[in-house]
Design a protein around this nucleic acid. Structure first.
Length: 340
DNA sequence: AAGACAGACAACCGCGACCGG
DNA sequence: ACCGGTCGCGGTTGTCTGTCT
């Protein structure tokens, strides 16, 4: 394994940082700023590579670092954000002031480890509280290497859009685990899936989406996508109760993972779809129950074929939906409540 | 008390993106 | 357009510490 170009010097030290090194780095950065990290070690008198200095500063020495246990609010936010953006730790960290991506990543991974070692009991109650257990999707999806697949926002999604989503979502009270019926869907919530096995909508009908908005969530999404001012944001994942169906996802990352990111598991569209439906951010109680009822294999083979997906770089217009229905791959839909 | 084990945390590594020459 | 340097990110590994047996 090679090292980074800036770390090739033999004298570069590795391993834990000593208090003296920390002090040198802090002193240098507080007086000079870091500017170019590759120059920092030399100027600060450290026998470290610039990368190591950067990491140390960002993850440990930065004055605004917040240490200590994650609060329940932070925990909840991490879960929600992870359901939205997947393993984009830096992105998640940007919404948690004082927390680093590394910290969040470690926290999440240790959590996942726990979940793998102690699988959630097989009742729908596994989604009762977010602090005691993340949405059923997360551990399973991460374990399957699919945790990054669930996001209604593409990799190129506007940060502002996501921020807006988050701020709106966080205003909603958590509903998970309540015995009361799930909260009603927002009338124009754009992000839903439908199961084509039970709700076949002739693509030709899509030419006038507004006429179907209230009865077909997909059409709502379509209309919203084509009509920016009418765009409405989805509810917080936590607010989506059992039986709600849910949820939208930009699965461009499926392609991404197949295309060039060898770090992620590969799989067929069907596997990806099944993985997402089972374990993606869209997976809530109903899917878990279904998984238990069907068995993993059955779900993979049978249920996945009813999931419709398309490329997110494919323009979403009424005219190309027909082609999507038969060939597409990358967004998937499911009828709300169908699997309840 | 001592060893085994698990969890938490720190750090490293490889890769992709970006940018300037 | 190409290339090399740099930065940032995510995955992984290593180390420390607390708990259990």
């Amino acid at each position: 394994m090679g090292h980074h170009s800036c770390c090739n010097q033999q004298k570069v030290k590795r391993g834990l940082w000593s208090p003296e090194e920390d002090e040198k780095l802090i002193r240098y950065i507080t007086t000079h700023g870091y500017g170019c990290w590759s120059e920092v070690p030399e100027k600060a008198g450290l026998q470290r590579c610039g990368k190591s200095c950067r990491l140390r500063w960002i993850n440990y020495l930065r004055p605004d670092i917040r240490r200590g246990r994650f609060t329940a609010e932070e925990e909840k936010l991490i879960i929600s954000l992870h359901a939205i953006v997947g393993n984009r730790w830096a992105h998640i960290a940007s919404h948690l002031p004082g927390r680093t991506d590394n910290e969040i990543k470690n926290y999440w991974n240790s959590w996942i480890k726990k979940k793998i070692r102690k699988p959630v009991s097989t009742t729908g109650s596994s989604v009762t509280t977010t602090t005691a257990s993340p949405p059923c999707s997360t551990a399973a999806s991460d374990a399957a290497g699919l945790g990054h697949l669930q996001t209604p926002f593409s990799a190129a999604a506007d940060q502002h859009q996501l921020d807006t989503f988050i701020s709106q979502s966080l205003a909603l009270p958590p509903k998970l685990g309540q015995e009361s019926p799930p909260a009603p869907l927002p009338p124009h919530c754009p992000f839903f899936m439908f199961d084509t096995s039970v709700s076949v909508s002739p693509p030709s009908s899509l030419t006038s989406p507004s006429a179907h908005q209230l009865q077909h969530p997909f059409l709502t999404f379509t209309a919203a996508s084509m009509d920016a001012p009418a765009y409405q944001l989805p509810p917080l994942v936590d607010s989506i109760g059992i039986g709600m169906g849910m949820v939208a996802m930009d699965c461009g990352l499926v392609e991404e993972s197949r295309g060039h990111d060898h770090r992620h598991h590969e799989g067929t569209n069907g596997q990806a779809a099944a993985g997402m439906a089972n374990g993606g951010g869209c997976c809530f109680g109903q899917q878990q129950q279904e998984e238990e009822a069907l068995g993993q294999d059955q779900w993979d083979d049978e249920s996945a074929q009813h999931l419709l997906m398309w490329d997110d770089d494919q323009e979403l217009t009424a005219s190309n939906l027909e082609a999507m229905e038969s060939t597409a791959h990358s967004l998937l839909f499911m009828e709300p409540n169908d699997h309840a």
